[in-house]
């Protein structure tokens, strides 16, 4: 049987959780297929930068890869639903919505396939959003009013606008300096970045809003997938399901370990149910704006999340 090579492009290094996630996919697939499928991982953006992955995989330039979900927004604007604030009530709701086979996933994955030619294999958890601040903790929507806030996406900017703040789009690497020099008042980032980028040295309060998620997607060129034998196809889909859950469990466990560790370095604030309700009310306009501006799938995606 001829051996098929699956080349995988990844922005992050092999040692990163996402790299490990692909390696565990590799070991399952290679073992179950009896060597008829071979996975080659090209980490650290050796082949493509993150923003090129949708096109590279979609066009078949490379067989598979991981990209930040937001990278698909140019072709499927509705994927940014993941950034709509406080749409997912809690961790359980988030897990249900993002797992393979959910209503939301079906709508988005189908649209991504249709628009780009990339088949979504699984979603890769990366972390959840937190707010950073100096002087006093952020508890209520009013704490954002009049503040200059670092964001990392368009919808997150809408959130800040809805709360009466001024959003500034800024890459992750520029955060430390921006906080240190007080170029912005409030930070928005993933919890793990607070540790890895040592942001606790320049911000002393962290609010675990966990209001939106940061997700990557593992995609495969659809033509390539269709060209595989039925048994190999199901091996890939099975493996995807396994490593999807693996990574999500691992990431959320790591996140809580990091938060515990950070408690000694900064003040960590949780939001009560009551407080979350206030945030949800204050950002309701973002949902409307999302439905209005994000095209045909936006409304059905929101409905899919809200219908339980």
């Amino acid at each position: 049987k001829a051996e098929k090579i699956i080349r995988v492009t990844l922005q992050l290094p092999e040692t990163h959780s996402l790299g490990q996630n692909w390696l565990s996919f590799k070991s399952i697939v290679e073992k179950k297929s009896g060597g008829s499928l071979k996975v080659q991982l090209f980490p650290s953006a050796q082949l493509y930068k993150d923003k090129q992955v949708p096109e590279a995989v979609g066009s078949g330039a490379v067989e598979a890869g991981s990209a930040f979900l937001g990278r698909f927004a140019g072709s499927v604007p509705a994927v940014e639903v993941i950034n709509v604030p406080f749409l997912f009530d809690n961790e359980a709701a988030l897990r249900a919505a993002v797992s393979t086979g959910s209503k939301m996933r079906n709508i988005l994955d189908t649209a991504v396939l249709k628009e780009t030619g990339a088949k979504v294999l699984w979603w890769q958890a990366f972390g959840r959003n937190v707010y950073l601040n100096n002087d006093s903790p952020i508890r209520l929507p009013a704490d954002i009013k009049g503040k200059k806030v670092r964001t990392y996406g368009k919808i997150l900017g809408w959130t800040i606008e809805a709360l009466g703040g001024a959003p500034t789009l800024m890459s992750g690497s520029k955060q430390f300096l921006a906080y240190q020099q007080k170029a912005v008042d409030v930070g928005m980032t993933g919890a793990s970045a607070v540790k890895s980028r040592k942001l606790y040295e320049v911000m002393n309060h962290m609010t675990l809003s966990f209001d939106s998620a940061i997700e990557f997607v593992a995609v495969m060129n659809n033509k390539f997938f269709e060209g595989l034998s039925k048994s190999n196809q199901s091996i890939i889909l099975e493996a995807s399901k396994i490593v999807e859950k693996q990574l999500r469990d691992q990431i959320y466990a790591e996140e809580s370990a990091i938060v515990d560790e950070l408690r000694s370095k900064m003040t960590v604030t949780d939001l009560s149910e009551n407080e979350r309700a206030k945030w949800r009310a204050a950002t309701e306009g973002v949902v409307d704006r999302f439905i209005k501006e994000r095209g045909k799938n936006a409304e059905s995606v929101i409905k899919a999340v809200r219908k339980k």
């Binding site: 923003k51 949708p54 096109e55 937001g70 990278r71 698909f72 927004a73 140019g74 072709s75 628009e115 368009k154 789009l169």
Partner: peptide
């Protein structure tokens, strides 16, 4: 991508 009316995913 022109026929599909795609845009860059940027600002």
């Amino acid at each position: 991508s022109t026929l599909a009316g795609h845009t860059t995913d940027s600002f």
